[in-house]
Design a binder for these strands. Structure first.
Lengths: 98, 98
DNA sequence: TGCAATATGTTGCGACGCCATATATGGACA
DNA sequence: TGTCCATATATGGCGTCGCAACATATTGCA
């Protein structure tokens, strides 16, 4: 969900995605390299994202991923599910602390 | 975290815990039996909860779990961590939808 | 008698995160 | 020139854990 969110507006490469997740979450969320890249391959295999190699002088090659039509649909479902999940968890933990 | 929360106020047995989680979350959170009982054993092995068999006529035996001192400490840490995690996720997904 | 709800339990499979390690480039600094 | 850090992608192996499927046992209701 996080990866799909981050490439929703524009394509990004793996390293950029991992840095954004770490920065924006204030360190609360973290993807280690050994989780991030295999995850990107899974998402691509499922057809939710589409990668493309970009070569630029002055920097090594990067693989930019963009959101596919299917990915956009899946993202909407995941966001809705996530919000329901959080609301559910809160109902359980907050009632007990009332 | 959910299990620890639910037995914070008073001891409960496995089946009751699973029903409470399902009801209060409106079905958004669910523990299958093959996840619930092994999880209870793990929590007990870690010393966070303490189980006790209770026999009552008119119903089959139940194992009631109560929160230990360690469990109470762990629950506080988990709640804090969970809230930070949710806040982090929200910062990532909401910025993109702004 | 049969069925649903209650209540606890196990085996085995698959998904997935992380440790450790590997490769490669560019820029800053001594 | 050499060293170190940040950037950038990649993989093998291990451990955790959720779930499907199956199993056992009791109570209450039709």
């Amino acid at each position: 969900m996080l990866i799909l969110s981050l490439i929703e507006a524009r394509p990004r490469h793996g390293y950029e995605i991992s840095k954004l997740i770490e920065q924006r979450s204030g360190g609360a969320v973290r993807f280690h390299v050994a989780s991030l890249y295999p995850l990107l391959y899974r998402l691509e295999r499922r057809g939710w994202i589409q990668g493309r190699w970009v070569e630029k002088s002055g920097q090594r090659r990067r693989r930019y991923y963009r959101l596919t039509r299917d990915g956009r649909r899946v993202l909407a479902v995941q966001l809705r599910g996530w919000r329901e999940f959080v609301a559910g968890i809160n109902r359980i933990t907050e009632v007990e602390n009332a």
